[in-house]
Design a protein around this nucleic acid. Structure first.
Lengths: 205, 205
DNA sequence: CCATCATAGATAGTGGCGCTATCAGATAGC
DNA sequence: GCTATCTGATAGCGCCACTATCTATGATGG
C-alpha cells in the first residue's frame, strides 16, 4: 500500500487525514489501518468504485443517526445502479418484485436500489429467453431469508454496537462474494454428477 | 445500441461478423441479436470486462467439447480474479475451503477460481476482524446447495441441450445478481424488525 | 551546524478500458 | 449520375484509479 495511494484516498475523502504533529509529520493510528482494510475490501472484493466507497464511509462515519437509517445509507451504495429506459418491460418486473415482497411479508422498500436491481435482472432474464426462471424465485428467496437470518444472528452474537454499521457493510459485500463462490462450487458438484462424472477427480475446472 | 459499438464488439471477438452480401452490406440475424443481449447482460448486470465476455463467448461457441468441460470454461471467467501475495493467511483459508468442500462431499475442485475466490473472501473477513464469520459458512453452504439444486432443476425442465452452456452462463451471472438483491431485501426486513420500524412511529433502538 | 533525507501537500500525468468520431472506399437506391 | 448509407480501419475521447513530480518544511546524524 503505497504512500501516494493513501494520500489519494485522503484527498478523495475515503480516509481521514493523519493528525499533524508538525507541518511535515503526521501520525496514523490503528483506526486508519482498519479503515484502509475496509477500503481495500470494498474496492477489491466488493468491486465498488471510489465514489461508492466514499458513500459508504460517509454513512459509516455519520453513525449518529438512527441505526436503521444509517444501515440503509451505508449499504445502498453497495448495490450497482442501472439506468433503464422505461417501456422495455421494467414496469412489469417492478410489479413482480413488489408482489414478491408483499407475498413474503417483508418490510422492504419496493423502490429501494435492491428491489430495482432485482427488477433489472428479471428483465435481462426475460430478454434472454429465460422468463420461466422467475418460477424459481421463491427458492432463491427462501435461501436469501436463511442467509439473512444467519447474518443477523452473527451480528447479534459477535458485533458490538459501535461496529454495527461497518460490519453490516462488510457482511453485505463479503457475504455476496462468499455465497456466490459457494453457489459456484455447488454447481460444480451438481454439474459433475449430471454431466461429467469422474473425469479424474476434478470438478468443472 | 449504436453501430460503432457493435463493430467494436465484432473487432473484440465478442460477436461474429455479419454475413457479407456485398462488399459494403452485411446481414445480421436473430442469432446476432441474441448474442448482443448476452453481451449486454454480461457487461451490465454481470459486471464482466470485455475480456471476460470474450472468454465466455469463446467457450460458448466452442461447445463441441464435452459439456462438463465447456461449462467450466464458460463459467470460470465469471468469477473475479484476485492476486494474493502468499503468506497473508491465504494458505490457511485455502485449507478451510478444501475442508468445507470435503465435508460437504462436493465434487468440486479446491483449486478452481470459485474456491480461490472464497478463500480470498475469508482472508478479507479475517483482516477486517470478522474471523468468526466462518461459523455461519455452513448456513451459507446450505442455502447455496438449495439454490444450485433449483438451478439445475430449472435447466433440466426448460433448457434444451444446445442452449445449455449459454443458459449456464446467464444463470450463473443473473442468479448472483438476483440472490444478492433478495438477500438485501431480506436484510432490510430483518433490520427493520430488529432496529426499529422507522416508517411508522420512530422506534429508534 | 550543516548536509542529507523523508514527509506533507498540491498539481499534473499515466495507463487501461469501453466505447466513439472520423475517414476513405464501395455500392444501394433513386 | 448523384447522394445517402454501409463497410472496415485508425485514431481519439472520457472516465477512473492511481502515480510521478514538484516545492516547502522539518527530522536525522556525523
Amino acid at each position: 500500500m503505497s504512500v501516494p495511494t493513501i494520500k489519494f484516498y485522503v484527498r478523495e475523502g475515503l480516509l481521514p487525514a493523519g493528525e499533524l504533529t508538525s507541518p511535515n509529520q503526521a501520525s496514523y493510528g490503528e483506526a486508519h489501518v482498519q479503515r484502509l482494510r475496509l477500503i481495500r475490501a470494498l474496492l477489491d472484493v466488493g468491486g465498488l468504485s471510489v465514489a461508492g466507497v466514499r458513500g459508504v464511509v460517509t454513512a459509516v462515519d455519520d453513525a449518529e443517526q438512527p441505526v436503521h437509517k444509517v444501515l440503509g445509507a451505508a449499504t445502498d451504495p453497495l448495490v450497482p445502479r442501472y439506468d433503464r429506459e422505461p417501456g422495455d418491460g421494467i414496469e412489469e418486473a417492478r410489479k413482480k418484485v413488489a408482489g414478491l415482497i408483499a407475498a413474503r411479508g417483508w418490510h422492504a422498500d419496493p423502490s429501494s436500489p435492491a428491489a430495482e436491481a432485482l427488477a433489472v435482472a428479471i428483465v435481462a432474464l426475460d430478454d434472454l429467453g429465460h422468463g420461466r426462471f422467475v418460477e424459481v424465485l421463491d427458492t432463491y428467496a427462501d435461501a436469501a431469508e436463511g442467509v439473512a437470518r444467519a447474518d443477523l444472528d452473527y451480528v447479534a452474537r459477535h458485533v458490538a454496537r459501535e461496529e454495527l454499521v461497518e460490519s453490516a457493510v462488510v457482511g453485505t459485500v463479503l457475504g455476496d462474494a462468499i455465497f456466490s463462490s459457494l453457489r459456484r462450487l455447488a454447481h460444480m458438484d451438481a454439474s459433475d454428477s449430471t454431466f461429467g462424472r469422474t473425469t479424474r477427480g476434478g470438478g468443472a475446472e
